[in-house]
Design a protein around this nucleic acid. Structure first.
Length: 490
RNA sequence: CGGGGUGUAGCGUAGCCCGGUAUCGCGCCACAUUUGGGAUGUGGAGGUCGUAGGUUCGAAUCCUGCCACCCCGACCA
C-alpha cells in the first residue's frame, strides 16, 4: 500500500483506487466504467442492505421490483426529469444479433425496436406509470415502496464505487394524499439515512436542503446528507426528494378524497447506493488499509494462531475454537485463520488491509499463561488479555472501536469546517486542505454558478436548523440571511 | 467530443530513437529450512509484444489504419 492520507505522498484518488482493489472489495471490469464487486466487498454491502432494509420496514415500507427497461415515451412526460437524465442514458435499440459472413456477429438491422427502451437511470417514470393503476381512492394511500435494484447512468468519468456506469442502490417511491404527509416522509427518510450513516457507518453527516440548481430533476425540494472525506472533499451520501405533484401530473395519477373530489397524488423518492461503500473506505481508512466500523464489518474478529508444529497448532486450535464459540454466542462474527500456507506476519498485514476491527493472536506463550494478544485495528494498540470473560471484553472493545471511529471522523469533520466572509480566504481554504466552508451567498443561481466556475466549489447544502444570520455574499457582496455549506465534492 | 499519453506473462515494467524471436521485479508451482509483524534459498512454469495491414531476408522496434485504456477539459443532483 502506497502512502496516501497521512503522508499525502501520492494522489488521494490513486490511493483510494489501490485500496479498493487491494482490500479485495472490487475491481474494474471489461465493460466501460463498470466494476466487479468481489465477495468481500459484497459482503459489506449485504450488511448495509440488511440494516437499511430493516429500517425501511420498521417505518412501514415494503419491497417490490419494477422493470429494468423503460419505454422511451415515458421520459417525455416529465420535462425537467428528462432534461436531467437524457444526457446519460443507455438505450436499447435492437433485440437480435446475427452472423454476418464478413463482419462476424453484428446487430441485426431487421431487429430494430419500434420504440427504444431506456435502461433505467432511476425508476420514477416506470413506477408512476404503474401507480396510476394502483391508486383510485384515498383508501389506496399511502403507498410506501422500496426497490433494491441496479441502475445505469452513462457518466463520462467513472470511479470505483463513487461513480460507476452501473450501480446498485435502493430507491424508495412513495405516494401520499397530502403535501404535508409527503414532506414528513421525505424528512423521515433523510433522518433514517443520517442515522444509518452515523450509527452504523460511523460517518458524521450534515443534513440539509439542496439549492434549486442542485435539486433532483423533477423534485420540488431535495434533501441530502453530506459527508466529508479525509482529503477534504465532500461526498453526497444520500438524497431524499419531495416530488410534489409533478410525477402524478405527468402520469395522471389522481385519487378521490373523502370529500369526493379528485386530486393529484403527492410523491417522494429517496435513495442510497453502493457509493456508500466508497464513503466508508474514504472516511476511515489509513495507510495500512481499510478501517471498518465493527457494526458493518463482515468479519469482526480474526484469530491468528502462531505455531511451529502440527501439535502446537492442534493445542492452539482448541483454545481458538473455544473463544470463537464464545464470541459467536454473542453474535460476533469470527474468522479463525488457520491457513498453513501463510505466515503470521502476512496474515496480520492482510487482515489489517481488509479492515477487520479486532485481531486475536494465540501462541505457545499464551497457552502457558492463559492469555491472548488482542490488537485493535483503529488505533493499532495491542494488549495481552486474560482468557476469563474474553467474550465480554471483546464485545466491549468492538463497541469502543465503533465509537472511537465515529469520534475521530466527527472531530475531522468539525476541525475541517470553516466560516469565512472573504473571497480570498474562501479560495485559500479550498486550495489548502479543503473541507466544508460556511459562507454567505446571495441566493441566486447565477452567483452559485459563478462561484462554481471560479472555485470549483459547489453549495453542498443549506443545513437544516441553519441559524439565520445577516451577512454579505462572499462573491457579490449582496445581502444574505444565512450561511450555506460550500465544498469541492466528488 | 477536444488536448496529451499508454498498450510487452496474472500485476508492475526494460527494450523501441539505432530492426536480428524479449529484460527485471512481484506473484505462481516444487522441495528444503522457517513461522510472536508482510520469510529465505535452490529449481521450475508462464509471452499471438493491443489489433489489422504494409516495408524488409528478418518487425516489440519503422510506416498506415483500427481498437482499448489512462490523465486534463467538457460532463456529473
Amino acid at each position: 500500500m502506497s502512502k496516501g492520507i497521512t503522508s499525502r505522498e501520492t494522489d488521494y484518488s490513486q490511493w483510494y483506487n489501490e485500496l479498493v482493489i487491494k482490500a479485495d472489495l472490487a475491481e474494474h471490469s471489461d465493460v466501460r466504467g463498470c466494476m466487479i464487486i468481489k465477495p468481500y466487498g459484497y459482503s459489506i454491502w449485504e450488511k448495509m442492505q440488511a440494516v437499511l432494509d430493516k429500517m425501511f420496514k420498521d417505518t412501514g415500507h415494503q419491497n417490490a421490483y419494477f422493470p429494468l427497461f423503460i419505454p422511451k415515451s415515458f421520459f417525455n412526460k416529465e420535462a425537467s426529469h428528462v432534461e436531467g437524465f437524457a444526457k446519460e442514458c443507455a438505450v436499447v435499440t435492437h433485440y437480435r444479433l446475427k452472423n454476418d459472413p464478413e463482419k462476424g456477429i453484428i446487430v441485426d438491422p431487421d431487429a430494430k425496436l419500434e420504440e427504444e427502451l431506456i435502461i433505467r437511470p432511476t425508476s420514477e417514470t416506470i413506477i408512476w406509470n404503474t401507480y396510476r393503476n394502483w391508486i383510485q381512492s384515498y383508501r389506496d394511500l399511502p403507498i410506501l415502496i422500496n426497490q433494491w435494484a441496479n441502475v445505469v447512468r452513462w457518466e463520462m468519468r467513472t470511479r470505483l464505487f463513487l461513480r460507476t456506469t452501473e450501480f446498485l442502490w435502493q430507491e424508495g417511491h412513495t405516494a401520499h394524499a397530502s403535501a404535508e404527509e409527503a414532506l414528513t416522509e421525505t424528512r423521515q427518510m433523510l433522518d433514517i439515512y443520517a442515522e444509518f450513516a452515523e450509527k452504523w457507518m460511523a460517518l458524521p453527516v450534515v443534513k440539509g436542503a439542496k439549492t434549486p440548481n442542485e435539486r433532483f430533476a423533477g423534485a420540488l425540494d431535495t434533501f441530502c446528507i453530506e459527508a466529508l472525506m479525509q482529503d477534504g472533499k465532500a461526498l453526497q451520501a444520500g438524497t431524499s426528494h419531495f416530488l410534489g405533484q409533478n410525477f402524478a401530473k405527468a402520469f395522471d395519477v389522481k385519487y378521490v378524497g373523502k370529500d369526493g373530489k379528485q386530486e393529484y397524488v403527492w410523491a417522494t423518492s429517496w435513495g442510497v447506493s453502493t457509493r456508500l461503500m466508497g464513503a466508508l473506505v474514504m472516511a476511515h481508512s489509513d495507510d495500512e488499509g481499510l478501517v471498518l466500523p465493527p457494526k458493518l464489518a463482515p468479519i469482526q474478529v480474526v484469530i491468528v494462531p502462531i505455531y511451529k508444529s502440527e501439535e502446537e497448532l492442534a493445542e492452539i486450535s482448541k483454545t481458538a475454537l473455544q473463544i470463537k464459540k464464545e464470541l459467536e454466542s454473542k453474535g460476533i462474527s469470527v474468522k479463525f485463520d488457520n491457513r498453513d500456507t501463510q505466515r503470521p506476519g502476512f496474515k496480520f498485514a492482510e487482515w489489517e488491509l481488509k479492515g477487520v476491527p479486532v485481531r486475536i493472536a494465540i501462541g505457545p506463550r499464551d497457552l502457558e499463561q492463559g492469555t491472548v494478544e488482542v490488537a485493535r485495528r483503529d488505533t493499532k494498540e495491542k494488549s495481552v488479555l486474560q482468557l476469563v470473560d474474553i467474550a465480554i471484553k471483546i464485545e466491549h472493545l468492538l463497541e469502543n472501536i465503533q465509537e472511537n471511529i465515529y469520534k475521530k471522523a466527527l472531530n475531522f469533520k468539525d476541525t475541517n469546517t470553516y466560516k469565512t466572509d472573504t473571497w480570498d480566504d474562501f479560495i485559500k481554504l479550498l486550495d489548502g486542505d479543503g473541507g466544508f466552508i460556511a459562507a454567505h451567498w446571495d441566493g441566486t443561481a447565477e452567483t452559485e454558478e459563478k462561484i462554481k466556475d471560479l472555485s470549483k466549489a459547489t453549495i453542498r447544502c443549506i443545513p437544516l436548523n441553519n441559524p439565520k444570520e445577516e451577512g454579505k455574499c462572499i462573491l457579490t457582496g449582496k445581502p444574505s440571511q444565512q450561511r450555506v455549506l460550500f465544498a469541492r465534492a466528488y
